[in-house]
Amino acid sequence: MEDLKQALKQQIIESLNLQGMKPEDIDDNAPLFGEGLGLDSIDSLELMVLLERNYGIKIEDAREGRKVLSSVQSMAEYIQEHKKA
């Protein structure tokens, strides 16, 4: 799980081009949107694409997506649960 969260943080930084940020700067439970990292709606689409491309996970339901993308922790848990073998 820790390795997954570390990899996920790195992928978020690269995919969203969060310049000057390192994986250790992102708290596992900090909100990704609003406060916390301050991401916006386009970033949420980019994160959906990241999950699909890197983990083969497609989120169809917007409400579920909002829950999954709330923090690195929630993303990692969802990936572990749904990742295709």
């Binding site: 386009i42 689409l45 980019e46 694409v49 699909e52 491309r53």
Partner: peptide
């Protein structure tokens, strides 16, 4: 490359 799936919105916008 991705067969029209999982496309980044930023480049399109």
């Amino acid at each position: 490359a991705l067969r029209e799936e999982a496309l980044n919105p930023t480049f399109f916008i």
